[in-house]
Design a binder for these strands. Structure first.
Lengths: 282, 282
DNA sequence: AACCGGCGATACCTCACCGGTATCGCCCCA
DNA sequence: TGGGGCGATACCGGTGAGGTATCGCCGGTT
């Protein structure tokens, strides 16, 4: 099975429309139709159901969609990491670390300082992204290593070391009547009248239905809380980049959050090993 | 990057010889040389160092070797699992479970019975293999789910659930002077004069250097022990398929062995979920 | 009921590129 | 200095990927 065929199939399977898929791929529709037919013939498997007016996935088709996406990510990762390895020989970015924007900031800066002081340390690029995007970046090779936060992020499929564990705090508008409490319970802060929890985008970039404002990063969220339009429960360390307009109150029964450093399991890079060693020594 | 190019590069990188690689791929040498050159040109990266008389990998080349092997496994997995999904619709093997030959036998049969009794259970094929081969089979799609034994097998890169934990016992020839002891320590059984630990093949099929007979599975090992040519330390449950010629003695300070059920993290199959549920209920 | 429009499949053509054979150039070694 | 092993180059033929034009089917509209 060739990568080209996989890319074509994944495009059609995601769009469920040959015309749009062809457009997205930058080719005409007839070659796309033929390529999919040929793939089905070579596999000996029907992947798509074309009853006129609609294209749907067969059972085998949805398996190939999932597995094909994973395989394409792996191929992209091979491409990107190879290019990066070649650049690294000439000096440039040795490792790319990805973390959620606005999370674990002081841990991250300590880590970067500690690692940079090591002999043989390479340059580390830091990539910030929204929640849930890190796994993808790690899988498709745009990043080599990530700071993840369990239980929000899953470390399944990666190798990981735990770095630290912390409780969570509620973030409330400064004048809110609960802002003065010494501590709260989850039941106190879920469904606060007029202060809904925000909605984060899913892996596909769309927002789930429901109440609450749509946010893309912590800065947006804090602004909305300061405006009295939302509330949130976040790990303690986010306090360091909050200012006077919001209050933080520990939430006793919120799940604890563990920060871990994670990387693809087949990495055998010297640089990555050094960074992980530095992290576990913090 | 196309799958064909990756396969070609991996062959050359493993053989470090264009002629042999071409032979292994079933093509002539000149097209192979050209394909590699083109890959290097497209990536803009030197992958191989050809000083006359020897081919060696560059730093970027070894990155592409590792990442490329992982990517090819993922592509193979997509192919195999798609074909299997299509067969499953017509009734045949719904899941392939792989485990080390001769390990966790009664646990496995209980698991298969429990699962088979569930409504909607599909047929489960059992694949037996040597130690260290399971991860590979899971990665390239020849298997869907595995019984692994920590700490011998690594579950890195997979999703897993723990099933049970057990101590280890020394396996000795029936008449051995330590066979009557109530228990032993690791120090007692490592380097027994005339009873070396066996050597198992590595992932590449070759055996490490050193003393001790080469073995490929538990049956061979037990036979060698009964003949007084080897000894071993294995999880307790292996007792059930031993016979009179060998003795087992608990080893108090051997690491405990945890049997886990593991599967590729992006699986979303209903059948797999049912099997895992059955396993955790045992 | 007839027509129109959207969509996937088919027909047919062109050209890139993949693979094969023959041969070269280089270098180690006898 | 000549031979042999090895990778690169030159050249050729066939497969197949992609493009354009068009068909066939079906559903909704008037």
């Amino acid at each position: 099975m060739e990568t080209r065929e996989l890319r074509y199939f994944v495009a059609v399977a995601e769009e469920l429309h040959f015309g749009r898929a062809a457009q997205r791929l930058g080719i005409a529709q007839p070659p796309l139709s033929r390529a999919i037919q040929q793939l089905e013939r070579r596999l000996g498997v029907a992947l798509l159901e074309r009853n006129s007016r609609a294209v749907t996935l067969t059972e085998a088709g949805s398996v190939l969609l999932r597995e094909g996406q994973a395989a394409l990510d792996a191929v992209d990762a091979a491409d990107r990491r190879t290019r990066r390895a070649a650049l690294a020989e000439t000096g440039q970015p040795g490792l790319v670390l990805v973390t959620k924007a606005g999370a674990s900031n002081e841990l991250l800066s300590k880590l970067l300082d500690t690692y940079a002081a090591e002999p043989g340390a390479v340059t580390v690029d830091v990539l910030l992204c929204g929640p849930g995007e890190q796994e993808r970046l790690l899988r498709d090779g745009r990043a080599d290593v990530a700071l993840l936060h369990r239980p929000f992020d899953s470390t399944v499929g990666f190798d990981a070391e735990e770095l630290c564990t912390e409780g969570q705090v509620a973030i409330l508008p400064a004048g809110h009547h609960l802002a003065g409490r010494a501590h709260l319970r989850m039941a106190d802060v879920t469904a606060l009248p007029g202060l809904p929890m925000p909605r984060w985008p899913g892996p596909d970039g769309t927002y789930p239905d429901g109440p609450g404002p749509q946010v893309r990063d912590h800065a947006q969220l804090v602004q909305l809380i300061a405006l009295g339009r939302a509330s949130a429960v976040l790990p303690e360390n986010c306090r360091v980049h909050l200012h006077g307009d919001v209050a933080t109150v520990p939430v006793l029964d919120a799940p604890t959050v563990t920060t871990v450093i994670a990387w693809p399991p087949h990495s055998r890079s010297q640089a990555l090993a050094g960074l992980v060693r530095a992290a576990t020594r913090l």
